[in-house]
Amino acid sequence: MNKTINLTLKVWRQKSRDEKGRFETYPAQGISTDMSFLEMLDVVNEKLTVEGKEPIAFEHDCREGICGSCGSMVNGRAHGPLKGTSLCQLHMRHFKNGDTLVIEPWRARAFPVIKDLVVDRSALDRIIQAGGFISVNTGSAPEANSLPVPPLSAEKAMDAAACIGCGACVAACPNASAMLFVSAKVSQFALLPQGRPEADRRALGMVRAMDACGFGNCSNHRECENACPKEVSIVNIARLNREYLHAGFVSHER
């Protein structure tokens, strides 16, 4: 049933990367519980605009949990309180009348703030460039069914490939590590025969790039898999460690 609630928002406002940020308090009145979290922010922004103030900058696009654009800390939790749910799929019926919501950008050295809730996640693209691919030029692929793949391998690869690159794992990690992100891509390819020829190179290259970008290392807090909107498992981190160790000890690529 449609009902409305009133909330108090404490939102991180920061004009640019180099300026100091601060929390601003905004009332969010008459919020329908059927709204998504981002629609609630839309309503606040419309009001700010009409009042002649600058609306809150936040990243979003598909609003159906797949593009990976959106994401903020809500009361200290990446993408808010609901498990396996990105911010755009979080609906206001999960909050109570009178709640105070503290909304912050992802916090990580490798993700500098651009404005308000928007951060620079280009480091994730640099990690992909360091090996997150299979080297096959267009046109040179063999017939698709010439290489059978055990269905279980394909399923596990798909579990890892579900990563949407939102950065919540980094934001949730006390070390701001990108290990879940890296391990998802390394695992997807390590599990498939197509990915084996470059497996060593990929694991070494992507981990090195992660370090170079300023992400921390994994110390098994498991906050990442808890925050991941696609519930990518830390089993993938274990697999990455095996791939990395193997590559580091015995491969020609080291």
Binding site: F133, I134, V136, T138, G139, S140, A141, P142, E143, A144, L147, P148, V149, P150, P151, A154, E155, A157, M158, A161, Q188, F189, L192, Q194, G195
Partner: peptide, 14 residues
């Protein structure tokens, strides 16, 4: 389809 499989896209399998 050939190209996508070679790229490591985890299509559903029998």
């Amino acid at each position: 389809i050939d190209q996508c499989v070679a790229q490591g896209i985890p299509f559903a399998r029998e």
